[in-house]
Design a protein around this nucleic acid. Structure first.
Lengths: 122, 122, 122, 122
DNA sequence: GTGGTCTAGACCACA
DNA sequence: GTGGTCTAGACCACA
C-alpha cells in the first residue's frame, strides 16, 4: 500500500506524508476511515515510529486527518481539501509558467505542449 | 545584482547558483563575460568564499561557466544551455499537468488558467 | 581498507572517491551495502569530515551511492555503473592509441605489447 | 600555430608545453630550429610571459629544447626524445590495460577494439 | 547517530 | 590576484 523509496532524496516522513495525501485525495481513503496505527505502520515499513509520527503530525496540521486520543487517527472530511489541492496545483502551474516565460517559451508553446501529451506521461 | 534571502530555506550556494543561472539564460551575462571573483563576491555578499566556491563549482559542473586557473571564471557558450533549460521547464510542466489531472483538473481548465494570468505573477 | 597517499599529487577527496569506486566496481562492496559513516571514516583516516563529505558527494552525483538522511550512505545498484566504466576505459584506450599512432607506434606493436605483459603490472 | 583552449581545465603552461612537444615529435619543428622568443609568443597569444617562460622551462628540463643565452631557445636533437615518448605511451597503455582488466575487460576484447577503430578517432 | 550546510582561516598552484 | 583544497569546528534536519 505504501512503499518507501530509499533512493529518493526527500526525507522519509515527507514520502509517507505525500503517499497518504494522495490516497486521501484519490478517494482511496474516505472521510472517517481509520488510519493504520503508528506502531503497526512503523513495523510494516521497518521504519522508526518517530518518522511515522512526524508524517501523521503533518497530515493533522494540514487538515488531512484528525486524532482521537486512545482510538487512533482518522481521515478528515475531504471536500475542502480537494479545493485546496486544486489551488496548490494552480500555484505550481503559475511558477512553471513563470520559469517558462523567463526562458522565452511562449504561452502558445506551453498550450500546444499540454494538448500534445494530454498528461499521459507516468 | 545578487541578493541572498536568508528566510529562504534553500541553501545559500543554491540561491547563488540559481541567480547566476538565470542571469546567464536571460542574456544579462553573455558568453565569455567574466564572473565576479570568488573573493570579491564573497565580500560583497558577506558570505564565506567556500560557499561561493561551491556555487561556482556547480555552475561549472553543469556547464554554465568555465574556469581558467589564475584568471577567473567565465560564462560558457550559452546556446546549448538555453535548449536544455527549455527541456527542463517542459519536464516540470509535465509533472504539474500530471498532478493536475490527478486532482480532477481538466486540460481545458489548465489552458484557460495559463491564458488568464499570462504569466504576470511576480 | 582505504589508504591515503599523501605523496600523491591528486587531492585527497579524489583518492577516496577512486578507492570506493573501485571497491564497488570490484564487487567488494555490493548493492545496498552500507558505506562507513562520514564521521567514522574521517576519524579512521585522520581526515576532516568535510573532505569525506566531498568524496561521498561525488560518489552520489555520479551514481555510485545514494544517501538516506539520518541513516547513512548506501551502495547503488551496480549493473549500469559497470557498463559505464567499460565505456570509460575503452575511451581512454582510444586516446592512448591515438597518441601511439602519432608516435609512429603501429597497431601490431600495441597488440603484441598488450599480449606480452598480459596486464600483470601492479 | 599554437592555440590556447581556455575552456580546457589544464593550466595554460601545460597546454603550451604539450603543443610544442607534439610539434617537435611530429617533426614539424626540427633539431636546432629556433623557438619563437618568449616575448613574441606571449604577445601573439595574449598570455603572461611568465607562463611562456614556465612552459619553456619544462621543455628544457625534459630535454626538448636548449637555451643559448642572448640568442634564444632551440630544438634539441630529437632522436632520443622519440624513444622516450614511445616508452611513455607504452606506460600509459599499461595503465589503461590494468584498469580494463579490473573492469573485467579481457585482452581479446581490447585487441579487437583496437583493431576495430584502427585509431581513426579525432 | 547520520548527513548537509556554513564560517573562519590556512596554504598551494597558476598567471 | 585568482581559483582549489583542506582543516577545525559549529549548527541544523532527520531517524
Amino acid at each position: 500500500m505504501i512503499l518507501i523509496d530509499y533512493k529518493d532524496s526527500r526525507p522519509i516522513y515527507e514520502q509517507v506524508y505525500d503517499k497518504f495525501r494522495l490516497l486521501i485525495l484519490n478517494g482511496a481513503l474516505k472521510s472517517n476511515d481509520k488510519m493504520p496505527s503508528v506502531r503497526t505502520l512503523a513495523m510494516e515499513l521497518s521504519i522508526n515510529p518517530n518518522t511515522i509520527q512526524r508524517a501523521y503530525g503533518e497530515l493533522e496540521r494540514t487538515g488531512y486527518i484528525y486524532t482521537v486520543k486512545g482510538r487512533g487517527n482518522f481521515v478528515s472530511d475531504t471536500e475542502g481539501l480537494k479545493q485546496e489541492y486544486r489551488r496548490e496545483v494552480f500555484g505550481r502551474l503559475d511558477e512553471v509558467c513563470d520559469s517558462a516565460l523567463k526562458a522565452g517559451i511562449t504561452v502558445d508553446e506551453m498550450i500546444s505542449h499540454i494538448k500534445g501529451n494530454g498528461g499521459e506521461q507516468p
